[in-house]
Design a protein around this nucleic acid. Structure first.
Lengths: 348, 348
DNA sequence: CTGTTAGCGCATTCAA
DNA sequence: TTGAATGCGCTAACAG
């Protein structure tokens, strides 16, 4: 029962210097690998360090160097496999490079994000990777700009001059998927998409519309669900869709978290895939691959997104600015055809 | 092309003091909410702060207060849904409480973990939640102890005096699952489990053995696969199992990441569930729930694990030590019966 | 109630 | 090549 663990006084650089009988500055040079230190002195210092179990205090280092060697990753939801993969890849890259990674989960709340970004500022993180909740929110834009640290946006666009950007070509994937369904004969194709105020949402809808437009077909606006319009989970939205007089003959899901809900609702309603309804999943993983029939999916590599973002941020961190040409990375997504899509029974 | 974003000189507490025409200490008191400051002065200071966009430098604060208000979470694999959920829950709790969360992914490498824990020490994190790669590794034990910070172990046990512990009753769940299979008539039950040097692995095998022992049955050691023995992915292990002369009639999977592999291998081999083989999944999610037939699963609440760990760490952080009685949390897992288990065709 | 001062632990300039 | 001195930005103890 002895209070919050005894903070034993930790040894400082000064203790090391005394034990090694050298000046404090010399110890600093050894730690930071500055060349001009005699081999014998070097050894003495190292011995003292390990004898005392000395660890430099990085807060103190930060004060002097004006750098924290910390970066932050701001995501809407750590548990979403997409963001988890981005985080994982980023963490690997940064810890490799000697940076620590701070995570901030916004839970899709702009207020939370605002306050989190604020604390990142106080902590003087050296850089940030962000999947912002609302790329159009001026307060958020200002908060990120105020960081005065290199920023890489993931699947988002914000008018911040030097920011790096890593995005997936979602419009094209969605055009491909929609075109495929249209060409099978579908006309009532429901689209579930992320919130429209962000690039992800806009791109998906853009692609969807493009496929219709290319064929001179009109889009039924009632089949578009950005998350705001959705007012509920994927399962609820799907239920409501199926209850309509003119139910859709195909559904495109919004992401990893929504496929399960869609499938549950279809099962409840006794709809068979693909006989009664076709399904395309945004995102490929165990679930779409292992269903029977397997689900046609738009596959992207979330780890690659994180890795690219990390690389972009690292170059901005270590060297100069990002060259204008390489400030932006566009990754491709691929439509993987499987058994979940077929011609609709009745053409509309 | 102006280098790595201009680090504009940020305003310091001194700038605020000058602008507000008060002493530096007064500003500090306002910032930290110390009561004895006149209302008018208070207002002047706040105005100056917002005018300058002043943000206290937390590195400097840390130096004085000897606290960083940072905690770290060490996990083997950020992308594993279990750990992602733990992270997510912990992050929510900590950011609520004004702590920032550092994540460290060890990729199941003790060396990586060792060096990561070392850097947590340099960063003087206030506390740590850890899912260590090898709870028996003396170097790791020493590294965690050397942190001199409150520690909460998740699904692990290490002989560190004041550490908090959050674990799931895995032995019991596995006994239940195994018993259920034995009672259906299965005798050749393959068990895939995490590495045996950690509690998770031991508990699962303990529970498995217990069910056999209670019935006076002998365990076939060749059906036990802790990850080390596995030498490959779940899919490969399952393939090999199915190729045996005496193939198992039931399989218990090791976790979220392994179910997919098992199912793929079964499908390849043309084995039907449950007619040819019964399956129990460790972990419940979309995949087991949506398969046809749905997969019997052992369900645990990963978010709850993270939340409990965070709570434990927070009490250790904010106040005193953990009372000996509440230093350890045991969470239950539940066997959810579904259609993937049936009596084997031929009794062995 | 407010102002002054002394470090927290370190990197770095300048002398030696 | 090494040693001594300075200050990074802040909090808290003390004086007024």
């Amino acid at each position: 029962m002895n209070g919050p663990i005894r903070k034993q006084a930790r040894p400082t650089i000064r203790d090391v210097a005394e034990l090694a009988e050298v000046a404090l500055g010399t110890v600093s040079r050894v730690i930071n690998g500055h060349a001009n230190v005699g081999a014998d002195v070097q050894a003495k210092v190292r011995r003292a360090i390990s004898e005392l179990g000395y660890q430099p205090n990085s807060a103190a280092q930060s004060m002097r160097t004006q750098a924290t060697r910390m970066v932050a990753c701001v995501v809407p939801d750590i548990q979403n496999p997409l963001y988890a993969a981005v985080l994982g890849a980023a963490e690997a890259a940064f810890s490799e490079a000697g940076y620590a990674l701070l995570v901030a989960g916004t839970a899709w709340s702009t207020e939370r994000e605002l306050s989190l970004v604020e604390t990142l500022g106080r902590r003087r993180v050296d850089g940030v990777i962000a999947v912002t909740t609302d790329e159009r929110n001026p307060a958020l834009q200002a908060a990120y700009a105020a960081l005065q640290a290199p920023l890489v946006l993931v699947e988002r666009e914000m008018p911040i001059p030097l920011a790096g950007i890593v995005v997936t070509d979602q419009a094209r994937s969605l055009r491909d998927a929609t075109a495929m369904l249209l060409d099978l004969g579908h006309r009532r194709i429901a689209l579930m998409a992320p919130p429209i105020h962000n690039r992800s949402g806009r791109e998906r809808i853009t692609g969807y519309r493009a496929a219709f437009a290319e064929r001179g077909l009109a889009v039924n606006e009632r089949l578009l669900f950005d998350e705001a319009a959705a007012a509920g989970t994927a399962q609820q939205v799907t239920r409501a869709l199926l209850a309509r007089r003119q139910a859709p003959t195909a559904i495109i899901t919004a992401g990893d978290r929504s496929l399960g809900g869609v499938l549950r609702a279809l099962r409840e309603a006794g709809r068979r895939i693909p006989q009664d309804i076709s399904v395309v999943s945004w995102g490929d993983g165990d679930l779409p691959q292992l269903m029977d029939p397997p689900i046609t999916a738009i596959r992207y590599d979330a780890g690659e997104i994180g890795a690219q973002a990390a690389r972009l941020l690292l170059t901005a961190l270590e060297g100069g600015a990002l060259a204008p040409g390489s400030r932006r990375r566009l990754l491709m997504a691929e439509l993987v055809m499987r058994g979940s899509c077929a011609a609709p029974l009745t053409s509309s």
